[in-house]
Each structure stands twice: as structure tokens, then as C-alpha cells.
Write a protein that binds this DNA or RNA. Structure first.
Ligand SMILES: [Mn+2]
Ligand SMILES: [Mn+2]
Ligand SMILES: [Zn+2]
Ligand SMILES: [Zn+2]
Lengths: 139, 139
DNA sequence: AACAAGTTTGTAACGATTACAATCACTCGC
DNA sequence: GCGAGTGATTGTAATCGTTACAAACTTGTT
């Protein structure tokens, strides 16, 4: 599924900027923040504005093509993978890592009252990544 | 367990302000934000500063007496219940509700690489609470 | 009383995000 | 092709939660 197809599939009008942002997210699984995306695209789109990156990411999130992660209290991070998976953030180097989930377990785990309508689920882990853990142990 | 005891138990020196903040959190399970806490305590502690509320909550979080929730992208919310449970936020009225978890299921659910050291886990749900869901259906 | 260490306070700075108004790009009827 | 209309983009200014900082205050000690 290409970026243009994804946009069409959920009724978002394509524009060079929107395609560029979504393309970037689909090709980089690094959970970038707005500045990462802006810095990466700016060389190729010299007139691109940070505001457009913000607006586009909001639009894509509302359309369900992208998810916004609130795992990092400093700023939002974005992910074009909207299938169920968890995230781990390293409190030392701030890297965000995907954690696969055993799908069935989620229902077994949470006792959600039937009358509430869940629209999204996010599972976050915080701690030290292997590299930073190792570095900490040698200090 | 009283607020003063909790502070002592994890080596945080007590002060009237710290006790007041922790007391408030232990008595109100509403997941308040900084302004909620400040507004609630200010009548009784007229010299209390917002900065002190911020500082205290950071200290309490670092000491493990309190957890900081990043479920609401607008601002941090705080919870004196640090036992494992999930949170649901209503995207309409912003209420945060506790969701009990079946403890054992967490390990079964996430495939965490053994080399990473998890320090905290947060499971967030977003959607419409019963009241707002009902209101939405009648509109 | 003088001092040291730690805490609180008020204000200023910071930084991420949003609001807004002007400009731009594209489509459609002429 | 041409101009109006619609929506997208841009740059700047404003907002707002949070943090930095330095001065004033507390508390305990000599
Ligand atoms: Mn991911
Ligand atoms: Mn809670
Ligand atoms: Zn790391
Ligand atoms: Zn609600």
C-alpha cells in the first residue's frame, strides 16, 4: 500500500506535502516527531512549513492512517503502523522501539465496562534500552 | 497508609506542601492535573506556589509514590495509586477512569526482549465514556 | 545569634503546539 | 483561456504547560 493509496482509501485529498509526510512515516519506522519529519523533508521541499507538518499529522491521525504517540512527555511522536503493537521508550536515549503484542491477550487483560466505546488503545513501556542499560552498568 | 508515612517510607522529607499535595492525591482518585491540585489547595495554603506543586509532583514521581499519566496530550495528570491498572480517557469530557487489569495477562501479552529493563508500564484507552456516548447517540 | 542545607516562592524563559490572516494552487463554469 | 471559488499552505504571532533561576524563607546545628 503506497502513501497515495492510503490517502485515497480514507478520503484525504492528496497534496505533495501530505504525500511526502505520509511517505516518510511509511518508510521510516523510527517514530519521528514533528521536527524530525520537517528536517528530513525540508531539503526536498524547501517551502514546506512546520505548520503544514503539524496540520497534516493531525489530519492523518483523525483519518486513522497514522497514530500519535504520547509516550514522550516532551513532544508527540508519529507512527504509520496502526496495527496493534506496544512501544518502549528508553528514558536515557529517547529511542522508541516497537513491541509486538499477542493480540488475544488484550481482551483477556482489561476489564472494560461494556458501556464505554474504546476508539484506541496504547500500551507504553519505559525503561532502559539494551545499549543504555549496558552503558549504565559499566559506570 | 497516610501521606506522611508514604513520604517517610521512600525517603522524601515531609513539608506541609508535600503532605498537602500527596494527601490530596490519596483522597481524590480523579487523576487531577497541576491546576486542579493547585486550585484545590490554594484556599487552605494561600502562599502555595504552582512551582511547588510541579516540583513536588516530579519528586513524588521520581520517588515512586505517585505516577504521572501522559494519557492527555494537553497536560500531565497524577495518580497516587501506583499498583498496576489501566486508564481510559473520554475524548469528549476528558474524564479519566481507572480500568482494573488481570495482572497475569500482562506478561502473556507483550513480547519484551529480555535485554531491556522495564521501569514502568502504562496502558491507555481512548474513547467515549458512557455518558458522552449516550449524549452522542441522541444527537 | 550566626550558619548551613534544603524548601518554597514569584517571575522569567522555554518550547511545543495552535490560531490566524495572507498567499497560493486547482477546479469549474463561462 | 479566464476569473471566481474552494481548499491547502505558509509565516508569524499567540498560547499554554512546564522548567529555570535567584531571592526569601525554614529548620536544625554550633
Ligand atoms: Mn510503532
Ligand atoms: Mn488511576
Ligand atoms: Zn537507550
Ligand atoms: Zn465523557
Amino acid at each position: 500500500m503506497t502513501a497515495i493509496e492510503s490517502l485515497a482509501a480514507c478520503g484525504v485529498k492528496a497534496s505533495p506535502q501530505r504525500v511526502a509526510v505520509l511517505d516518510y512515516l511509511m518508510e521510516h519506522h523510527t517514530h519521528p516527531n514533528v521536527d524530525d519529519i520537517y528536517a528530513a523533508l525540508h531539503p526536498d521541499y524547501p517551502t514546506l512549513s512546520r505548520t503544514t507538518v503539524y496540520n497534516t499529522l493531525r489530519l492523518l491521525t483523525e483519518s486513522g492512517v497514522v497514530q500519535t504517540l504520547s509516550i514522550d512527555e516532551r513532544n508527540a511522536h508519529y507512527d504509520a503502523d496502526v496495527t496493534l503493537h506496544a512501544h518502549f521508550i528508553c528514558t536515557a536515549c529517547r529511542t522508541i522501539i516497537d513491541i509486538p503484542l499477542r493480540e488475544a491477550a488484550l481482551d483477556a487483560m482489561a476489564e472494560l465496562p461494556r458501556e464505554m466505546q474504546v476508539e484506541s488503545t496504547q500500551l507504553y513501556f519505559r525503561g532502559l534500552c539494551p545499549a543504555c542499560k549496558c552503558r549504565a552498568e559499566h559506570a
